[in-house]
Simulated scan of single mutants.
Amino acid sequence: MKKEVEIFVYGAEQICASCVGMPSSKETYEWLDAAISRKYPEQPFTIKYIDIFNPPEEEKHRLFATHVIEEDLFYPVVTIGEEIIGEGNPKLKDIYKEMEKYGYEEVSPK
């Protein structure tokens, strides 16, 4: 593995108006954490949830949270590095593809 990936899931308690019927941002975050951990066991990564209406003090997160709100992006918005990998209903396939660019490898069940 080249570099440990940091995944950020930007969302809110309230489901976005265009995403009614989909899981909440927090549920998506938890689902992604579990799915990625199963796909890449023993390959460390970090996944963090960022509330767009109450972001942490770190400037990059505050700026991106503001961007999500001002640009009316469908949340949750999933980022790896500086790239938006998915929004609204992120696809695991896209997230896995991005992680494999960083050297992550699927571990086949024994």
Rank of each mutant, 00 (worst) to 15 (best):
E30I: 07
F8R: 12
E42F: 15
F8T: 06
E30T: 04
W31D: 15
E59Y: 05
E105K: 14
I69P: 08
E83K: 14
I85S: 00
G11S: 05
G103C: 06
V9Y: 03
S37V: 03
E13F: 13
E83D: 15
L92S: 06
T28M: 15
Q14V: 06
E70Y: 00
M1Q: 06
V78H: 05
V68W: 00
S24T: 13
L32H: 10
Y40E: 01
V9S: 05
S24L: 04
T28L: 12
M22P: 01
T79D: 02
I80W: 04
I85V: 01
P55E: 04
F74P: 00
Y29V: 01
D72T: 02
Q43F: 13
P76G: 00
K60A: 03
I85Q: 00
P76R: 00
E82T: 14
K2Y: 04
N89H: 06
F74T: 02
V77F: 04
P76V: 00
Y29S: 00
A17L: 14
K26L: 14
E82G: 13
E82C: 06
E27A: 07
G103W: 08
K101N: 06
G103Q: 03
A12P: 10
I36T: 02
S18D: 15
P44D: 08
V107S: 04
Y96D: 01
V77Q: 01
C19R: 13
E13H: 14
Q14P: 00
V20A: 13
A34D: 10
V5N: 08
T66N: 07
G88C: 12
C16V: 11
I69N: 03
Y40L: 11
A34R: 07
I47M: 12
V5Y: 12
E98S: 01
Y75W: 06
S25Y: 08
L63N: 15
M22V: 07
K48T: 13
P90K: 11
G11C: 09
F45G: 05
K101M: 08
E70N: 05
L92C: 05
T46R: 15
G11M: 07
S24C: 07
S18T: 15
P76A: 00
V107N: 04
K97Y: 14
V107Y: 04
P44I: 04
Y102F: 10
A17Y: 15
A12T: 09
C16L: 07
N89I: 05
E70Q: 05
N89V: 09
G86P: 00
L92N: 07
Q43A: 11
F74L: 09
G88L: 07
P90H: 05
Y29I: 01
A34L: 11
I47Q: 08
K39W: 13
K97C: 12
A35D: 04
D51N: 12
F74K: 12
K26R: 15
I36S: 03
D33I: 09
V20H: 09
E105V: 02
I95T: 03
I95K: 01
E98T: 01
P90T: 09
E71S: 11
